[in-house]
């Protein structure tokens, strides 16, 4: 028991010093003193950067552009063109698409999904004169890997194009705010952005319909 609280007191001192406010310091010290085996690893862990929008890549560009566009129209008649609700829905779709890209990247990076390796295996089987059934299995595997890679590249491209469009929308809105501009043209861009965002969720379906049977 004395050893437990001895380690707890040490953990309390070390962990409390990392906190910014006195209240947080007090809670951390109490938690560390009483339950250091559980609290210490949690207190020492880092919040994942994925919590908010990432600071790099097309997802970050889109979210930043949407945020700034929203800021540009706030309190002006232009606000009706870009309601907060629509922007929230767009953000959610972009986050989903970005997560899909991350998952696809991880799947494509697996050693068993290496197209070169699958191709070599198929060539080796063909050279050995393997049965047609075996060859067909190897071909299906290779085909699946190539489709995965195509899907990833399509998702990335869609996000990149959307990021460019969002940048354009932002500059158009900022310009409209200060110099006045054609509301009709802005409405078209907003519609285009919304359509592209909707399209993000459809990339998988597109791939399915385009894929050979």
């Amino acid at each position: 028991m004395p050893m437990y609280f001895g380690v707890g007191a040490l953990a309390a001192v070390v962990l409390a010093r990392r906190e910014a406010t006195p209240a947080a310091r007090a809670t951390t010290a109490a938690a560390a003193l009483l339950a250091w085996p559980l609290w210490a690893p949690i207190a020492l862990s880092r919040e994942p950067p994925a919590r908010g929008p990432s600071t790099r890549g097309p997802e970050a560009r889109i979210l930043r552009a949407l945020e700034e566009a929203l800021e540009a129209v706030r309190g002006t008649p232009l606000a009706t063109l870009l309601p907060q609700r629509s922007v929230e829905a767009m953000r959610a779709s972009v986050a989903r698409a970005s997560q899909r890209v991350g998952e696809l990247e991880a799947a494509v990076a697996l050693p068993s999904h290496d197209p070169e390796r699958a191709r070599r295996r198929l060539e080796g089987l063909e050279a050995e004169g393997a049965s047609s059934r075996t060859l067909a299995t190897a071909r299906v595997h290779l085909d699946n890997i190539e489709r995965l890679a195509r899907l990833l590249s399509r998702e990335r491209r869609a996000l990149d194009e959307l990021a460019d469009l969002c940048d354009a929308l932002r500059s158009q809105l900022v310009l409209a705010r200060y110099a006045g501009s054609n509301l009709h043209g802005i409405g078209d861009t907003v519609d285009e952005v919304a359509a592209r965002v909707d399209g993000l969720d459809g990339v998988f379906h597109l791939e399915e319909t385009e894929a050979p049977p």
Partner: peptide, 9 residues
């Protein structure tokens, strides 16, 4: 892992 590493067929 070993069975996965075995070539198809």
């Amino acid at each position: 892992d070993v069975l996965e590493a075995a070539p198809a067929g």
